[in-house]
């Protein structure tokens, strides 16, 4: 009897916690960019930037607002890949978020048809309630069935990102250090001089990017593909020159910043570098 009671107890606890966590994420103020995206409804922006940390840490959206008087939103998320960019774009369109120009960062992750664990974790609370998220996770998460059918499993195996601490902070409406209104997050004071290794060659076709372009076309959004700056040590890298040939209309800004003091590490500008690059972007693209 008691063994059955324990089994039942565990199942009941898992179900209750699953419901509680999900409701907390649905009803609390955004504490990550996915929540921010889902909270955006019927809004309009002049410029939206999508990509990974090489967008999040380098596009100073407040500066764009200030200098151009245009609204800009930085939705770069750490480790995001083109599949993640695609799902965010779909969510924005689904929520009737209008944008004049969409800036999509393209660089070494062009070769990667996978998806980011961070984005996947942050999407998990909405696995049952949002069709776009559901189909994205079905395609990109090898543990989709467990996460979909076993109560609380999705929170347990992602405890670091959507577990108790995050729920607790959400309940208390603790503000994050990040200002999600514009989405720019400076890189911080770390400094790393190591030079990353880029892929040897560029893949000939990325079907995810094709889909992104197609969606923009059908929704009359002007898409701008750009490669963010790398440190001088990578300026002559074969991959970065090859990517120019492979992708039409790519703004290759990989060599736009030549002074290494503007870099926190080879792939990320520090705050001064981000300011300088955003100024450069405003001039170069006539924002």
């Amino acid at each position: 009897m008691k063994i059955s009671f324990y089994c039942l107890l565990v199942v009941v606890l898992l179900c209750i916690l699953d419901v509680v966590y999900t409701q907390v994420y649905k009803k609390s103020n955004p504490r990550n960019k996915i929540q921010r995206v889902l909270a955006l409804k019927n809004e309009s922006f002049d410029y939206v930037f999508l990509g990974n940390s090489r967008v999040e840490n380098i596009i100073v959206t407040p500066l764009i607002n200030q200098e151009t008087d245009k609204s800009a939103l930085n939705l770069g998320i750490q480790q995001a890949k083109l599949n993640d960019v695609l799902v965010i774009l779909k969510l924005l369109i689904h929520n009737n978020v209008k944008m004049q120009k969409l800036f999509v960062q393209i660089d070494s992750h062009y070769n990667d048809l996978g998806s980011s664990d961070i984005v996947k974790s942050q999407l998990l609370p909405y696995i049952h309630s949002n069709e776009i998220i559901n189909s994205y996770l079905k395609e990109n998460d090898s543990e989709f069935n467990q996460k979909y059918y076993i109560p609380f499993y999705r929170y347990a195996v992602n405890d670091y990102r959507v577990g108790f601490r995050e729920v607790f902070a959400s309940v208390l409406s603790q503000a994050k250090n990040t200002d999600f209104n514009d989405g720019y997050i400076p890189f911080g004071n770390r400094r790393n001089t190591a030079i990353p290794k880029l892929p040897a060659s560029v893949i000939s076709k990325n079907i995810v990017l094709d889909e992104i372009v197609e969606i923009c076309k059908s929704n009359e959004i002007e898409i701008v593909l750009f490669c963010a700056p790398y440190c001088p040590g990578l300026h002559k890298d074969n991959y970065l020159s090859e990517i120019d040939y492979e992708i039409d209309n790519l703004y290759n800004f990989s060599s736009a910043i030549t002074d290494s003091s503007y870099f926190a590490d080879c792939g990320h500008l520090n705050h001064s570098g981000a300011m300088k690059f955003t100024e450069f972007l405003i001039d170069e693209l006539k924002l």
Partner: peptide, 13 residues
């Protein structure tokens, strides 16, 4: 203890 294990347990990685 079951409750704490589920809520506070580290099950990722």
């Amino acid at each position: 203890i079951l409750f704490l294990t589920i809520v506070l347990g580290v099950f990722s990685n």
